[in-house]
Design a protein around this nucleic acid. Sequence first.
DNA 1: TTATGCAATTTGATATAGCAAACGCCATGT
DNA 2: ACATGGCGTTTGCTATATCAAATTGCATAA
Lengths: 222, 222
Amino acid sequence: MMTAIAPLAPVDRDETLTEKVYSRLRSALVGGRLVPGQKLIHRQLAVELGVSPTPVREALLRLVSEGALDLDARGIAWVPRLPPERYAEIMDLRVELEGRAAARAATLATAADLAALRAIHARLMVGRRAKDGAVVLAENERFHFGVIAIARMPVLQRVVETLWTQAGPTISLLSAVPRPVSPAGHPHDDLLRALKAHDSVAARAAVERDLREHAVIVAPLL
Amino acid sequence: MMTAIAPLAPVDRDETLTEKVYSRLRSALVGGRLVPGQKLIHRQLAVELGVSPTPVREALLRLVSEGALDLDARGIAWVPRLPPERYAEIMDLRVELEGRAAARAATLATAADLAALRAIHARLMVGRRAKDGAVVLAENERFHFGVIAIARMPVLQRVVETLWTQAGPTISLLSAVPRPVSPAGHPHDDLLRALKAHDSVAARAAVERDLREHAVIVAPLL
DNA sequence: TTATGCAATTTGATATAGCAAACGCCATGT
DNA sequence: ACATGGCGTTTGCTATATCAAATTGCATAA
């Protein structure tokens, strides 16, 4: 007789094609490689990706249900243009939700958490100096979701992910316009200090400044 | 030559089977007709509903992406049991988001808006006196989303919809335990007064009391 | 030149088919 | 009684087929 001597994590089935296609499309959206107005024909995408139309269709429908894509009258998916007031609504919600997560993260962050965040931010700054927009975008996303992960708020995390995806093509405009150096320093540094000091109020304020500075840059581009 | 003499609204295509199945499943979830732990086999559902497996699968995947269903290791969809801390997280987010919407609704509500909300709440009270849990649940949902609609915050509305669906099977426990009559009166009445007075602070407080009183009833059942 | 009409193509929605993995059941053996 | 092995069934995932509606391109007519 052979029983498990330790609780083993169950093997999670390998990623389905639907999930792979979804990830690739989402990454293209938040990376600015899909521009507002662009149509996504599922049969054509299927040929390009070398898969059948079914998983592509499922991935597109998922993005539609998250608000990242729209369907026209025929049912063709396209990247919506974000009206300024909708962008503002998304940013207001991000301020509240990410601020809330940061406040909680301040009470939970360990030294290891902080070290990981600092490493991410360091890579972001390298990318910025190298004027590599793709790196800045990717590391910025890692940093923000790294903070949320520390807060252990899975429902909020999922909501912010959908907000991020919805604003993706707009956020990525940032990579075109390099962020000016703020005299007050990078908000991520403020946030790191607040997390280290377990200062929830300062953490929330740092997130708010970070997002508001984003918004000031992006809003005129809409 | 014949041109449009007025900008006509484009005919939106009739609902797809996927959408019909989604609506029916979502309604079953928030109506408590699907209980935590229950499995949803898409091929079996397809037979029951008289459609092919494809639209059923798409509807299930959408609910999964909204967090209303989980997939087990095999990919079978099931209604998750909500851990108490996750229920608490959802309710905290609802308090913030619905409170924010109510505050804004207070600045925008018209007399017609108020009349519509009062009619909904009246039907809710009729259902409560008749001990008709289904009516109470349905009218309560209409009331809450009616307030959000007044606030015109489409992104927030979508988020609250997903939160509502996630907590659906749990919220519906309310229909089993009739809500005790609060000495302070029904929070919806407070909210209606606040909306009429354009008092954003009171509106937010009324929503918070409403949701907290729900939580007090439901939490022990988890 | 512009409008009209028709056929071929494109496309989304749905149904069906094929495959592989997992499950369940039952017979067999110890 | 319990473990083991095997086989048929169930099930999700992906591909393919079918259909209808919309679009496009082009020839023709005014």
